[in-house]
């Protein structure tokens, strides 16, 4: 069944290295299988690109919300304990 809804986020970081760290941290946890959301992450230069696909707006929203909470924590961690060595 083809996905009908999608969303794209572009999150800029201070450097490519920091974007790679965020990618490394955030790509470990897979989307829940039954949620029906597909998420792909990639980095180009210092931007983290996130692509979401889902059947339902509700699951898409939940997934994006949760992703923002996570990316926010990762950014705050880098601000407090960075820059990368």
């Amino acid at each position: 069944m083809a996905s009908c809804l999608s969303a794209d986020l572009e999150i800029p970081f201070p450097s490519a290295r920091e974007a790679e760290i965020a990618l490394g941290t955030l790509s470990v946890d897979k989307e829940p299988k039954r949620g029906g959301v597909q998420r792909t992450l990639k980095v180009s230069d210092q931007i983290l690109h996130v692509h979401f696909e889902a059947q339902e707006a509700r699951t898409l929203r939940v997934s994006i919300n949760s992703f923002f909470e996570h990316v926010n924590l990762v950014c705050k961690t880098m601000q407090s304990f960075g820059p990368p060595r």
Partner: peptide, 16 residues
């Protein structure tokens, strides 16, 4: 668990 692991993974990469 995930919230805590996110911080651990991030500092592990920051500090290598």
């Amino acid at each position: 668990l995930v919230s805590t692991a996110l911080v651990a993974r991030t500092v592990a990469q920051l500090w290598k």
